[in-house]
Write a protein that binds this DNA or RNA. Structure first.
Lengths: 143, 143
DNA sequence: TTACGTGCAAAATATTTGCAAGAAG
DNA sequence: CTTCTTGCAAATATTTTGCACGTAA
């Protein structure tokens, strides 16, 4: 996952905010996790690089980045997780048994979105949908 | 929403647990909310009827009822909410703008479930899926 | 230089736990 | 009776806040 830090910098500055080392580190920390990252994990990564970033700053920064739509949030098996917001939305299959997380292309949901739009006039904003179930490995599924 | 308390009683006793007044009150409180209820709301309702039920009991009971699959949980715009588990699953459309919550029949998701099962061997357990977006009223949608 | 951001520590919230007393079955 | 449950209060955990100092632009 490439980390277009310059883009982030621009998008932050465009809104009249500053790009601080703390914000960079936190963005890095989220990017490095190849998928979802918890608050705890973000703190760990960030503090490995710069020992003294305050937790309060992490809380404030995550809220800040969410407001700017640079970061999205979801809840996976009871844990709040963060992820870099991407151009093309994607979603996740989470196995209730082994906890495995698999990505799911947005196209899988386009039909559903279309129906909801037509029948309910509801415009889905599925940037980060989490679908729970049992994966192939755990289900002993063979058809 | 009918409250088949006897059924709950049976299902609780079947597992070797007891049906206490506290558990009844908490089940009532969840049923009375015509849709999702927060922890806070449950406490309020419960304490309106029996002034002195401890919060710790509510926490423990909700966990207990979840384990028995009598109650389901979801996260709606950052709030953990509880709902009575129904025979036929149903889901929710939540408007990010006005907060309105609309129910969605499970049939809307059957196609998606089928595809995930076929292509991923993933068995969905969508007891309480929350889809965020913008509702007709807020979207100014007309087609 | 001038707000915007951060660190810090304390406050406010939220959740969990141990244990003795109470009660359902 | 038996042991599952509750209440209570204390222990933890989590998140928020105020304020003075630091710093990006």
């Amino acid at each position: 996952m490439t980390h277009h830090l310059l883009d982030y910098a621009t998008r932050i500055r465009e809104q009249g905010f500053r790009l601080t080392p703390q914000r960079q580190l936190i963005l890095d920390a989220i990017c490095e996790g190849d998928q979802h990252v918890t608050f705890e994990e973000i703190c760990r990564r960030v503090q490995a690089k710069s020992s003294a970033i305050n937790q309060a700053t992490v809380y404030r920064t995550l809220e800040f980045l969410s407001k700017l739509h640079l970061v999205t949030t979801a809840e996976i098996s009871g844990d709040k997780v963060y992820e870099i917001a991407t151009e093309t939305p994607h979603h996740h299959l989470v196995c209730r048994s082994c906890g495995a997380v698999e990505s799911l292309a947005d196209s899988f949901l386009s039909e559903l979105s279309a129906r909801l739009r037509q029948e309910y006039h509801f415009k889905t904003e599925l940037s980060h949908l989490v679908i729970t179930g049992v994966c192939a490995k755990c289900g002993g599924d063979n058809g």
